[in-house]
Design a protein around this nucleic acid. Structure first.
Lengths: 343, 343
DNA sequence: ATCAGCCATGTAAAGGTTTACATCGTGGAT
DNA sequence: ATCCACGATGTAAACCTTTACATGGCTGAT
């Protein structure tokens, strides 16, 4: 029992006085084995403390029970919460997870493909919008994969994310309800689907409220704090100041808040600001940021569930799963100040 | 090449016109193979795109190239930065990493031990101060392990962390240099080594500055934000207010700042506050927190290096590696206010 | 009483490596 | 010229499973 080498299926077979084939069957297809025999086998397993050797099993089966999770940067705080959902769901189904990060280096991404050649991993969770291996990689040879947050550019890869349009709509509706009419949308890159969809929510909300197009201000950037700051400067250059900034993500929103703060304005008294994502910092900046929450753990769970389904069935039930995002009201939004309303 | 099934060592052998044994030798012990032969093999490998099947290799060798990383909570933002260091170092040596989290549930921890029985993992990185499996687990049967941040209670397990005493000393020295004399130490639990060591730094600093014991205030808590808040209330109850709060970690420091803010005090004008850890939020709260930085990526790298050394040599070179922590000066510390100095 | 068919079990091959041992050939020492 | 030693390579076993196929015994129908 506390033997140095772990028990093998043969040890179990000897003790249960059956063949190793029967032991294997008793474990994996118990209905094919007589009750009495199954009992003996189970006892023998208990006595020996037997655990099937995953290596031998994977070798024989030609597939493993590991899922590779690749992110551009596993240091990203967004990453860890997703990981919780992924891991829980995986383990519940007897899978483990492997971690890789590419730091946006295609070469590194390619290294991870080796995990599949050698059957070390059965499936892939992708965190980035682009394939971490060069796009030339034939998608045909990609392992079963699921994207998280964003659809994976260029692949027919299903993904799990949040309904960006609905989320943006909730943000803009809040601002409208507070009385804002001149609301700027500070985006990142138009090439990103998240941008496109969030902006659709913005436009839809303003349309519904009857806000004319000439009251709309749309800027682009790169989604960083710096980019938010820059957007504020740009708007002060032109003469067209909004009463509220609706930002494509929290980073941008934080940048906007810093930019406005640097010019001596108070949020939310002078301007209202909303973000998107609900990053961990959102609650710590002051004023705490009103934003749209990504249900991260749930996204991770769903993504893993979808991947496992794909692994067993071969075909995913759906190719896009969008979860409902929630509005998180904190302190960065209020009614527009009279000063700006006059304009 | 773009064959459906990946190339095996046999394919390589056939093309190189050698036996599979020679191929294996050419890869793993190239010095045992004639130059000309090695060349042929390498070409054949290039042609076929051969990658050794890790499953078969692990099965044969009886050990894998995976390291299991177990944390109580992988959603913890501290976790992800360590992960970066761990992963980089592991990959540099041909290892991959597996993730597990226990949520402080011993049962869950035990499940992860199966990874070792079945040779799915060769070594273990532990994130918690206590063994995630019941303590009764014979340490003799533990896989090669290394702790991160804290020594693992009860095991003879080497660990990599930060020099807590030196870090605390840096914090207290800063406060002393600003002119503080009455400095409260807000700790967590005395059972934690980090607490003990950080407090040693606190005492050593005050001793060196000749601050008499009756000017020292030490409180315990549980290291949470709430606990920091509570400590402030306690100190206002008694009549003994310090001019500075030196906190055992950033969570506590944030709690202290919130508590002082709630009572209408300004930091750092009325009170100075320091933390320890430099969590990501530390820079976002206002005022930004002056604290001691844990060099997380470096810790991860060192921990993995130590583990890999242990895996090859069998014995670790050292059993405790303490990295030098840095003081990060932000805005939560200034000279004591005159109002309090008078007391 | 015979036999078909079925259920439970056993036998053996296969999956891809690594490596101890065997073999073969060459060069140098006698 | 003979033999030894050594270096390079090949052969085959072992690692632990899973599963197709074979076997054997039993039930129930004829």
């Amino acid at each position: 029992m506390s033997n140095s080498t772990p028990a093998t299926i043969e040890d179990v077979a000897r003790i249960a006085e059956v063949s190793i084939a029967t032991v294997s069957r008793a474990i994996h297809t118990p209905e094919k084995v007589a009750n009495s025999t199954r009992l003996k086998v189970n006892q023998a397993i208990a006595v020996t403390g037997y655990t099937t050797n995953a290596m031998a099993r994977s070798l024989r089966l030609g597939r493993s029970n590991m899922i590779l999770v690749v992110a551009p940067d596993i240091g990203d705080p967004n990453f860890s919460n997703i990981l919780v959902g992924l891991e829980n769901e995986a383990r519940a189904h007897g899978y483990g997870i492997l971690i890789g990060h590419t730091q946006n280096d295609a070469q590194r991404g390619l290294e991870y493909l080796k995990f599949f050649n050698s059957n070390q991993a059965a499936g892939l969770i992708l965190f980035t919008g682009i394939l971490p291996f060069g796009h030339q990689t034939m998608t045909a040879r990609l392992p079963p994969s699921v994207g998280v947050f964003e659809p994976v550019f260029n692949g027919g890869i299903p993904y799990v994310g949040v309904d960006d349009t609905e989320g943006a709509r909730k943000a803009v509706d809040l601002l409208l309800a507070e009385g804002h009419r001149k609301i700027a949308f500070i985006g990142d890159s138009r090439t990103r689907l998240a941008y496109v969809r969030r902006r659709m929510g913005y436009d839809a909300g303003l349309d519904a409220a009857g806000v004319p197009p000439d009251l709309r201000i749309v800027l682009e950037g790169d989604g960083t704090i710096e980019s938010g700051r820059h957007a504020v400067e740009q708007l002060f250059m032109r003469d067209t100041l909004p009463t509220a900034f609706m930002c494509v993500n929290d980073q941008t929103a934080i940048g906007v808040m810093i930019g406005l703060g640097a010019r001596g304005y108070d949020i939310p008294r002078d301007f209202s600001v909303t973000g998107f994502d609900d990053v961990p910092q959102a609650v710590f900046i002051s004023p705490a940021l009103t934003t749209i929450r990504q249900p991260r753990t749930a996204i991770g769970k769903q993504a893993m569930a979808l991947l496992l389904e794909l692994l067993s069935d071969g075909r995913p039930a759906e190719t896009e799963i969008l979860l409902r995002p929630d509005l998180v009201v904190r302190n960065s939004v209020s009614a527009p100040s009279r000063q700006w309303l006059k304009r």
